[in-house]
Design a protein around this nucleic acid. Sequence first.
DNA 1: CGATCCCGCCACATT
DNA 2: AATGTGGCGGGATCG
Length: 910
Amino acid sequence: MSHYNYLCKSNEIDCWTVFFPVVMAPKTPIKNEPVDLSKQKGCTPERNPITPVKLIDRPQPDPWTPTANLKMLVSAASPDMRDREKKKELFRPIENSEQSDTPDSLQYDIVDDSTVDEFEKQRPSRKQKSLGLLCQKFLARYPSYPLSTEKTTISLDEVASILGVGRRRIYDIVNILESLHLVSRVAKNQYCWHGWHNLSQTLKTLREVGELQYGELLTFFQHKEQDLEYKFGERKKETIPDSQDRPLLDFSEPDCTSASANSRKDKSLRIMSQKFVMLFLVSKTKIVTLDIAAKILIEETQDTVDHSKFKTKVRRLYDIANVLTSLGLIKKVFVTEERGRKPAFKWIGPVEFPGKTDELRGHSPASEPLPETQTGACASYQMCATGKQRFTRHASFNGTQPCEGTRRKVSSEPNSPRQERQDEYCSKMINLPAVCRQKIEEDTRNKACATETILNSARNPSITSPLSLLPVPGDSDFCVNPLPQAVFPVVQSDVPSLSLPNGISSQAPHPSTPAASKTENGKPTLLPNQPFLCFPSSSLFMLCGSLQENNSRETLPTTGDVGNGSAEAQAAVPPAVCQKRSSHKCAWPPAPVDDEEPAAKKQTMEQNDVPLSLVVPKKPSESPKAESTPGSGCTSAVHLEAFHLDLASPAAPEAANKGSTKSLDSQGQEKRSQIKDPDEPSPGKEHISKENVNQPFLPQYLYVQPTAGLNSFNFLFSASQAPGTISLAASQLPSLSVPCVMVPSVALASFPLVCSPAVTSPLSAVPDGSFSTTASMNFSMSSLASTTPVFIGTTPVVTPKVLPVPSVDPQQPAHPALHLSPALARSCSAIKLDSPVCMGHPVTLLKLQQVSPSSTPLTPKSIRPARHEAFFKTPGSLGDPVAWKKTEGNQTRNASSVQRRLEISSTSPD
DNA sequence: CGATCCCGCCACATT
DNA sequence: AATGTGGCGGGATCG
């Protein structure tokens, strides 16, 4: 805690001072909690006290001396770290020397000297310099659960000097922390510390997203991996040297150069981090090996895997793993596979987040009233915003959030302006569709804005509404809430939460999940409710309908029919949840809808059962499935992957059981079995049954990957699935099953697509179905010429509850937009959806990012679909929006920064 | 020798 | 143009 000293220095924040003391204390404890501690920093509870002490005194006169500072930090950290250390040894040099156990912070300080000596003498081994250690030190400086009121700002320079490391390292840490929403960027060189409050929410969201995205995939991979690699890319492996094979597509190279730009974000550490976390959350075993993770992550990006890329990816994963380890979320383990033993990481963080239910591990402060959970995040963000300023980017999830891309936005001060804008945005958001259109029409530039807006909103809750969201229950601010539902359950939850002890409200779910929940298996919960989703992969856009929970319930019969959805499409929305969704929501953000939490609860119950299966098509290249794209094929890209669930699936139960049953070990077994399915013939796709089977929800969405990119986008809307309908066999293309339509998108490019729904009528009018139907229309319009296919699905909507839909939200009927927007956005995107509530809209979009070269006719560079994308982006990929791409282009830059951020631009050109 | 992963160049983004 | 960010991969260490 020296920090506060620092802080003091810095002008900015004062808050700290005050807090610190307080904070500290809590922090530790919290962390400690259960398991975590060990892992985390907080391990030793005892020590807690320690830290605080130091802060104060901190003798060092020089702030500057790095070492000194470090030490302090270290010392502070040390306690926690130790545990970890043991494992790792990170500290060893430093701490070891002294500390034995004493917890005192003081000692540490003292120690410092000695420590230093050693340290220096010995040359710190590499370990001492490790990112993990550094991260611990970093974390030690801030309270785990800062009070809402305070906002802690983090100055990168300061921290870097304190910790004695290069700024570059700090970025690594911060980026990862940002991906988990522990911090958010406020401005240049400044980040806002949120603490662990939102972690559970974040994780929950990630899990949801992950399930959609990776669910089976992961499993699949695991199995497969062993067996063959046929999957995705397979060839990948090292074995094969060349990377290039890639016969299929090529985008591989992504343009390196120029491309790099684009890709840059896509590959960002932030996104990777989120994706990585998703893998853990989705994995039954909760164990993920780096190579599998790398493969999966790579694939998203592209298919071909070069060896070098693989290596690079792995390198990054190590970075991420180190940080996550420091956070106590994962630990290194070895898995023995047939092949042999290999290092892997096991998730040791909270598994269920229903609200907190379980564990959240230490993270959640128990007593604290924080809004935590869901809200938490928001709150935090807001706080920042509010307090300080603008917040800027906060985190977003990547995937989840759609918005994200923006990361940085910060501005320095623009406060007001921004906000205002936001408002606008909000409104816009609401109607996305409409908005989108307009923009489109208008022109690009607008688009950009719009997009951004959207994104922002979506993703950052905070941003979005800076105002609105307050964690507070009831807050007026929250007004927004109304929407919230829609959007975010999470948010909402807050409110409720408050009331309830734990998140009951929201959480409720887990209960439902009965057994399943067990964390261990991973199966746990699953989000039952999730309706939405999105995701993303990078390249894709999807819109989803919601899935209904219905299925789970199956009930949905109603829905079923919808089938095609049509209008009803709205269906997509989650039934229950959905209700609300006003039309607008639909549009984009998916949102949320929600009614409220209640839904969630319900869901909970339902949840599990459904197994889903998904199919993945693998690589685009491969199979591009023709289906979809028939002709274009090349284009790429599109491959979609669909996941569909079977509602009916019979298996479900079984699966579930299994799942649960199995434990790690079992995995193997499972795998096989699952894998086996190969029935699937299609080369391209495979479907998998999920291991998770449980998955609670089923997502139904399809995902398309576009390969290529650029122009093409693929979209999918899922329709909702009809319940029954869906049933497609996995083998089949999922897509097919779904009532979707495909459109070629090529043309689209120009157009963003988006949500058409809105278009039609945003509000209520469209209600539910909006997307589907409408959407389609739009698309078509667009043009389609293109190459890429788009799918539009209808949704079935229906859901039981849903239907009603329509209407509007409670809150705002019409234009609630404002409020909504934020919510939506967030909800959609990032945040989580938590609950089922949300569901709403599941719409998600994905964007595709990149390009795939192959198909596209266009020049890649020159054109990038980006623009379009922007609109859609949403969710995307896992990653953040960010990922979306920035298109590279510098040109982009030209555009306003904003655009850039969004990446909307596409410009190009050079 | 393979697994890790630090370090910092340098392209890109933002001011 | 300056400066902030952060991708990326060489190559040093670790085990």
